[in-house]
Design a protein around this nucleic acid. Structure first.
Lengths: 219, 219
DNA sequence: TATTATTTTTAGATTTGTCTAAATTTTATT
DNA sequence: AATAAAATTTAGACAAATCTAAAAATAATA
């Protein structure tokens, strides 16, 4: 079946929201989509009729197995294009999101398979997020939130969950990117903030709020 | 100003039609767009209000200078993506049109500038059509229709104007692509058909109708 | 538990792009 | 020039996606 750009965007957003909480509710989806609750309800009816959603009035909703497959194919396209933009075209990793938002809706499967090959079958996008394969399988990486990293143990940043321009700008300022090796040199009990050390950079302090979004790789 | 996908498609089609005849009329645009004359009239009013068109009821229409610029930017994007699909992703040249139809509407200028650089600033797309630069300038190539090529003079195919799947399939069958060296070995006065010779291929006969769409390069 | 507040849905309107059928204008042909 | 044919436009309708305002259902609280 084919989906409109708008439908694909809803499906993708629902997927992301239900990663965190099992059931998704109307208002949180409206916030995520930057639209009104009434518009969400309209779309829910449509997606429900198309068997993308399990939806019960007033009770919340989640994707069906079929809906999840559709979501993963959009996520796959988004992340492959992000990889392309950064690795082949030379974009900075904090500039590619909006462009990939458009590219993810190009419909050709042939295109996305050839793109994947051209890129050398990458497993993770430039933000460290896993790229689902054509069957919807998601590569896993052992991850740990920096808030849980032992003191003075070096580890490589593997992903950043909040990808707002503000967050990405801040990381850039601290010279932190995917793959950057970091070390927690001090932990402040008072507010949970961390003193971190990046190679060739002066030590700096990040708030717990930021730290919660940064994950590192361990074996 | 920003244009919808539909508006961009109309603008591009008008551009192509007015390349051949100065003024464009409603029915021919409807045919090109595979839609109805009434829909075309509706869109003409909109584009006219946006100063894209010079339009007089019942009299035909053509792009303003501004409209031409917009058209050329869409054409530029289409042809750069076609080049990418063939040269980087390995698509056959007769498979890329529909995908490029979608990609040409991705809006980022930054993207298209970086793509152009990545591709090495190509001047012609895989069908031999010139790729306008970011200022709307179109590279020129001295071209000659094969119907006007002297007997037994070899020349390289530089472009093919009709890009219907049928035409492209036929050219593939005759082993003719952009750059292929061909020679007219005989000219039939009766119906204008031509006997042509492609290196390592048996001589074959093409109708005048096909020949009219094939152009060769000369110095 | 009764009442208030929040969340969600419905009803009805709007915009964009399309359509059909009818009316109008232009062009072609007796 | 009168009439027939073709091209074009108008009028009115429809689907998709959105919105506002009001109604209904659920959750929170006094």
């Amino acid at each position: 079946m084919n989906f409109s750009i708008s439908e694909e965007n809803y499906i993708k957003s629902i997927y992301h929201l239900q990663q965190q909480a099992g059931l998704v509710n109307t208002n949180s989806l409206a916030a995520e989509m930057q639209t009104k609750a009434a518009s969400v309800t309209d779309m829910l009816k449509k997606l429900s009729a198309k068997k993308i959603l399990q939806y019960e009035k007033y009770k919340g909703f989640k994707l069906t197995e079929h809906g999840r497959k559709v979501a993963l194919s959009v996520v796959r396209k988004h992340r492959l294009w992000e990889y392309f933009l950064v690795e082949k075209l030379g974009f900075a990793w904090d500039k590619v999101h909006d462009i990939a938002e458009e590219l993810e809706h190009i419909s050709s499967n042939d295109l996305i398979e050839k793109l994947q090959q051209f890129l050398g079958n990458p497993s993770f996008d430039p933000h460290g997020d896993p790229i689902p394969d054509s069957n919807g399988r998601i590569p896993k990486l052992n991850q740990l939130c920096v808030t849980a990293l032992p003191l003075n143990k070096s580890a490589a940043v593997s992903s950043v969950t909040n990808q707002s321009p503000q967050m990405l700008e801040m990381l850039k300022h601290y010279a932190i990117a995917i793959g950057t090796s970091i070390k927690i040199t001090r932990r402040f009990q008072f507010d949970g903030s961390l003193e971190i050390k990046v190679l060739k950079q002066p030590a700096c302090i990040i708030s717990e709020q930021i730290a919660k979004n940064i994950f590192v790789h361990y074996d």
